[in-house]
Amino acid sequence: MSHQDLALRSSHAPNGLALVAQAFRRAAASQLHPRMIAALFLPFIIAFLGAVVLLWFFWTPLTGWLDSEASSWGMFNTLDGWLVAVGLFSLKLWLVPLMAAGLLLPMAGIVGLGIAAIFVMPIVLHHLEKRNYAGLSRQGQNATALGTWNAIWVGVLFCLGWFFTMPLWLIPPMALVLPVFWWAFALNRMLRVDAMIEHASPAERRLLWRRHNRQLWLLAACLAVINLIPLFWLVMPVFSALVYAHFCLDAIGRLRAETVIDL
């Protein structure tokens, strides 16, 4: 292939925002495949069971602790007393359960995302490898161990960050900004690793993460916004894996195609 041929090919290749849009289009098409539809149930079932367990064991102690903590918030109690006095409602009666649900349900969600990253992503990669990226060699090492460790530390940091920034939700518009930020962080830090570790070498991963850092964060931000819509919760773990897998596998293929040998 000559330099002129490579330049012509590169001029027609998508880049920037086009790569992000391409990943979403391909993921939507792949999600309709029966195998990917079947893959939806594993992370959903895990997340559902996790939510049941968390609510069963931690709801009462957590709401009790939040109720006792809320009693020391002077301005909160003043406002709550005023609302009760004028015959409206008790702010504490509504806020404490909402805060408890806001803590426990995201923890169940991050468990579902971790399951998707560790166990569903290999299924996604194998499916796409045969249908869309045939011939893309696997050069990764210790994929399972790296993916598991990455999912653990990202999940722990997500839970801690979510917990300690919840008081900021009372400051508009942080109740919208912070959930999007933390889910974008979890999606990007978890899925960009699992989408590459089986196919890309360590050197390729470092190069591609630097080259496509903005696009990877944009993927995560878009997915985090979609994640705010309850109707999409069922498909989000697998669909997110598909988006990142399409983007990363395509990026690996284009990186390896950059080597030019003039005949």
Rank of each mutant, 00 (worst) to 15 (best):
E129N: 14
A101K: 05
R131H: 13
A100P: 03
L170Q: 07
A251T: 08
F57G: 15
G87S: 01
D67Q: 07
W153V: 03
R192E: 15
A51W: 12
M236N: 15
S90F: 03
G50L: 01
G114E: 08
G109I: 12
L103E: 06
F239G: 14
T78Y: 04
L55C: 13
G74F: 02
L168Q: 05
L263T: 08
L207P: 00
A116F: 04
L242W: 15
L255W: 14
W153Y: 08
A101M: 11
Q31F: 13
V156F: 11
W82H: 13
P172M: 09
R210M: 12
A143T: 10
V193W: 13
A23N: 02
F41T: 12
M166P: 03
F24W: 07
V96P: 02
L93S: 04
I115S: 12
C222S: 14
F163H: 01
L88R: 06
L157C: 02
A245N: 07
L105H: 02
S201A: 15
L157H: 03
M1S: 09
L160I: 15
V180A: 09
F41W: 14
W182P: 07
F163N: 00
A184V: 00
A23T: 02
A27C: 15
L8W: 10
C248G: 14
L62W: 06
L66T: 03
A251K: 04
L228G: 10
Q31G: 13
F44P: 05
L6W: 11
L255Q: 11
H246C: 09
H199A: 12
G64V: 00
L125C: 05
M99C: 07
H199Y: 10
S68F: 01
G135N: 09
Q139N: 14
R189F: 05
G147W: 01
R35Y: 08
I46V: 14
A28T: 11
F89V: 00
P173W: 06
G64L: 06
P202T: 14
N150Q: 13
R192L: 08
P106I: 13
V84L: 08
F185G: 09
R205P: 00
N150C: 02
Q215R: 08
F232N: 10
L218P: 04
A100F: 12
P237L: 04
F181M: 12
H246S: 05
V84K: 08
M107N: 07
P106T: 08
M190Y: 00
G81H: 09
A241P: 05
N77E: 02
V177K: 00
W73A: 03
L19A: 09
I152G: 01
P43R: 11
R35M: 11
C159Q: 03
V53M: 15
L187R: 02
V154Q: 04
L95A: 09
N227D: 11
L17Y: 06
